[in-house]
Simulated assay, not measured.
Amino acid sequence: MNSLTALSNFGTDPGSLSADIYIPDNFPKNGPLVVVLHGSTQSADSYNIGSGWSTLAEECGIALLFPGQRLTNNVLGSFNWFESGDIHRGGGEPLSIRHMIKQVVDDHAVDPSRIFITGMSSGGAMTAVMLATYPEVFAGGAIIAGLPYRSADNLMEAFFRMKGYGSPSDCKLDVLVRGASEFDGPWPTISVWHGDSDQTVDSSNAGSIVGQWQNIHKVEGPPTRVETVDGFPRKVWCDADGREVIEEYIIEAMGHGTPISAEGDEGLGEEGKYMLEVGISSTRHIADFWGLTQ
C-alpha cells in the first residue's frame, strides 16, 4: 500500500490536527485534490488502506490530503463535529483543515476549482461541517455514515442524533447551512452513503443530509431518477440544467462503515474494522461522481 507523507507546516492550526498527504508521481499540474477524513478509532493510514484512495490516486492522478485527529482533542480520535469551537468558519478544526488545503494547493499546483472532500462517521459529519462553512472551497463532498451540519451542538445532542432522534427539520437544516458563510453559490455537489443496518449512526441521518441540501440546490421533492449500481439503488437529483447535484446510496444490510469492493480488476481497499466488503466501492463511485476517473 502506498505510504503517506506528513504535512508539517500549514498555517496556524487552531484545531491542533495532524496532516498527511499522498501525491502520486503522475499528478499533473492543475490536477484535483481530494480531502479524506477518517472515522473514530481510525487513522489517516488505516482509512487509506481500507478505502483504497491512494490506489485510485495512482490510477487517476489525484492529490490526497488526510487530516488527522489527535487523541488529546478527542479520546476516540473523532473529529469534533458537534463542539461549538469546531463547527464554525474561521476557527477550530475547520480552519485547520482549510489551512492544510491551501498549503497543498500552493505546494502542488492543485486546480482550486477541483477540490473535493469525503469522510466516514465523525469524518463524514466533519465533511458536512466543511461543506457548510467553506462551500466556496469545494466542488463536491461525499458523506459516508455521517450526519447533517449542525444537527447537534453538544455531546448529548450528538448521541441522540446518532440514534436517529430529534433531528432538526429540513428547513432548519437548510437555514443552518446558509448561515454558516456568506456564500450564495454555486454550491458543492453532495454524495451520501449509508448502511440501512447501521447501529451506530442511524440511516435516517442520510435522508436528513439530502434534505439539508435539496433546497440549496433547488431540487426539492422526489429524486429525478432511481437506478441500480452494482446491485444497489442510487437516487439522483438533477438541477434545472440536468446536472447531477445530489446522489444517495443506501446499502442494504450494511452496518456502520465505508462500503468497499476489494476484489477484481477494479477492486480497491482492504476489508477491516468499519471498512465493509459489500461489493460496491464507494471510493471509486464517489470519484466517478466527481468526474475524476475519466
Results as ranks from 00 to 15, higher is better:
residue 18 S to I: 09
residue 28 P to I: 12
residue 274 Y to E: 10
residue 215 N to K: 13
residue 167 S to D: 15
residue 239 D to C: 14
residue 284 R to S: 05
residue 77 G to V: 12
residue 194 H to M: 04
residue 48 N to W: 05
residue 109 A to N: 14
residue 84 S to T: 03
residue 259 P to W: 06
residue 289 F to H: 07
residue 47 Y to Q: 02
residue 190 I to M: 13
residue 269 G to I: 06
residue 188 P to L: 10
residue 34 V to K: 07
residue 161 R to S: 12
residue 259 P to E: 13
residue 143 I to F: 10
residue 35 V to G: 00
residue 72 T to M: 06
residue 253 A to I: 03
residue 88 H to G: 04
residue 271 E to I: 14
residue 91 G to Y: 07
residue 14 P to E: 04
residue 83 E to V: 13
residue 219 V to Q: 01
residue 233 P to W: 13
residue 189 T to Q: 06
residue 250 I to Q: 10
residue 69 Q to M: 09
residue 48 N to V: 11
residue 58 E to R: 04
residue 192 V to G: 05
residue 27 F to L: 14
residue 28 P to V: 13
residue 220 E to S: 10
residue 35 V to C: 02
residue 72 T to G: 09
residue 174 D to I: 08
residue 172 K to G: 06
residue 175 V to K: 11
residue 102 K to V: 15
residue 224 T to A: 04
residue 160 F to M: 12
residue 241 D to K: 14
residue 209 I to F: 11
residue 32 P to E: 13
residue 178 R to M: 05
residue 214 Q to L: 01
residue 112 P to Q: 05
residue 131 L to H: 09
residue 75 V to S: 13
residue 14 P to M: 02
residue 238 C to V: 04
residue 14 P to S: 03
residue 104 V to G: 10
residue 177 V to M: 06
residue 218 K to V: 08
residue 50 G to L: 07
residue 36 V to Q: 01
residue 88 H to F: 15
residue 255 G to E: 08
residue 194 H to L: 07
residue 260 I to D: 01
residue 287 A to G: 04
residue 116 F to R: 02
residue 54 S to D: 03
residue 164 G to S: 08
residue 17 L to K: 01
residue 211 G to I: 04
residue 291 G to T: 03
residue 24 P to C: 02
residue 97 I to M: 10
residue 198 D to P: 02
residue 250 I to T: 15
residue 262 A to H: 08
residue 180 A to S: 06
residue 231 G to S: 10
residue 195 G to N: 06
residue 22 Y to R: 09
residue 122 S to C: 13
residue 119 G to P: 01
residue 292 L to D: 05
residue 33 L to P: 00
